Amino acid sequence: MTSMMIYHPGDIFEDYAKNNPFEMGIFLEFTLPYYLTLNRGFYTFSVKENFFAPYLIKERKITFELDSRCRDSQSVPLREATFQFEPNDLNIWNYKYTVFNSGLRILIETFNDERDSIIQQIKNNGKEVMIALMQSCLEFILFKYNETSDGIHAISPSVYDCSHLSFNFVYSNFIIEYMTITGNLNTIQQVNDDSFREALNSDIIVWKAFLNESKYAFKTFDYKKSIIYTAIAFESFITSLIYSKTPDPNSYEKEGPNFLTIRTKVHKLMDNNYLKSKLDKSDIDYLINDIAYPRNDMVHGKVFELSNLRQKAEKSIEAFQILQDNWM
């Protein structure tokens, strides 16, 4: 919805605006279902022109306020953040909880010549634009949080954890020109449970569980986990095939003193007719590389930027699917 009204983000943001004038700003606010161990505070950083690509393509400042609060009489406890609880009814499992949680309010510096483009993009696909901007901020802030928290706490940054999505287009006097607020429902649906009933009475298919976790991790922006889990899923699939189909599984582990690579295992399975594909070996090698190389880079410390993993994770999942679709 559009509006022309005064927004009061609090003295700390208003003081910042007086000392750091900006043409326009995008103001985001949301709460998270966990407690960040940082002190309440106000923080600033600057970003390069590709930080919000393709929506905002300029260098700009970002400021944010972290606010942690104690909430009582909650019906749902929070992970590592439930302070106390008491029963509502002693006859059934029915409690109320006192929890700590944290919220972020983020101000993205924006320029007048970006205004019309952003408003049009929001009108065309508001939720996608909001998620993209929020996710970029969350990734940077929470990657830095994880980097400095000394292992006391760590968060996988995801807009899917936010209670709601709130987007405001403001001027330096905090008059709102454009505002939209939406809930954050993404998985509230029912699926056919026949496959679940069948799975309960059969062996666990490890590779499929890892692959599905990888797909969900990708959907919720956890690209590190997606890359690793896709690779685990593929190697689990091949290893399961070796141990269930071949008479001498150990022969697929080593040749002399050297351990066999996953690519060599696949070739050997194909040469021995335990695995057949509509694809030729060169195509299979290319797809295996898309799965194995990103994981290997992470394991061997060759990842130098955590915010550029989306394409690698996407190609990894796609490669797995293409291989699965072409086995015979």
Score class of each variant (00 low, 15 high):
Asp194Gly: 07
Ser163Pro: 04
Tyr171Ser: 11
Ser166Glu: 03
Lys144Val: 07
Ser172Phe: 05
Lys219Ser: 02
Ile155Trp: 05
Leu138Phe: 00
Leu138Lys: 04
Asp161Gln: 12
Lys225Ala: 03
Asn125Tyr: 09
Asp222Val: 11
Gly183Lys: 12
Leu211Ala: 07
Glu139Trp: 04
Asn173Ser: 01
Thr180Tyr: 10
Ile141Gly: 08
Leu142Asn: 08
Ser202Gln: 13
Ser149Pro: 03
Phe169Tyr: 13
Leu185Arg: 15
Asn124Pro: 04
Leu241Phe: 07
His164Tyr: 13
Tyr229Val: 01
Tyr216Met: 09
Ser136Gly: 06
Thr239Ser: 08
Pro249Tyr: 03
Thr148Lys: 01
Glu177Thr: 13
Phe196Gln: 07
Ser214Lys: 09
Phe196Asn: 06
Thr246Pro: 03
Ser158Asn: 07
Met130Leu: 09
Gln189Pro: 08
Asp248Val: 11
Asp116Asn: 10
Phe221Gly: 02
Ser166Gln: 02
Phe196Tyr: 09
Tyr160Trp: 14
Pro157Gln: 08
Ser117Tyr: 07
Tyr178Met: 00
Lys215Asn: 13
Ser195Ala: 12
Leu133Tyr: 13
Phe196Ser: 11
Ile204Leu: 11
Thr187Ser: 06
Ser156Lys: 05
Lys225Ile: 02
Asp113Phe: 14
Val159Ala: 15
Lys144Glu: 13
Phe210Met: 04
Trp207Val: 00
Asn184Lys: 14
Ser136His: 05
Ile122Asn: 07
Asn124Phe: 11
Ala199Cys: 05
Glu114Val: 15
Ser166Tyr: 03
Ser236Leu: 13
Asp150Arg: 04
Val170Trp: 02
His164Met: 10
Thr246Ala: 01
Ile242Glu: 10
Asp194Leu: 14
Tyr243Val: 03
Ser195Tyr: 06
Ile232Gln: 04
Tyr160Arg: 14
Thr187Asn: 05
Ser149Phe: 00
Asn192Trp: 12
Ser172Pro: 05
Val159Cys: 15
Phe111Gly: 12
Phe169Leu: 14
Asp193Val: 03
Phe169Asn: 10
Arg197Lys: 14
Asp150Cys: 05
Pro157His: 07
Ile141Gln: 09
Ile242Arg: 15
Gly183Arg: 12
Tyr229Phe: 11
Asp248Gln: 12
Met130Arg: 06
Tyr243Lys: 11
Ser202Met: 06
Glu213Thr: 09
Glu128Gln: 10
Glu139Val: 02
Tyr229Arg: 09
Ser236Arg: 07
Ser195Val: 15
Glu139Arg: 12
Ile232Ser: 02
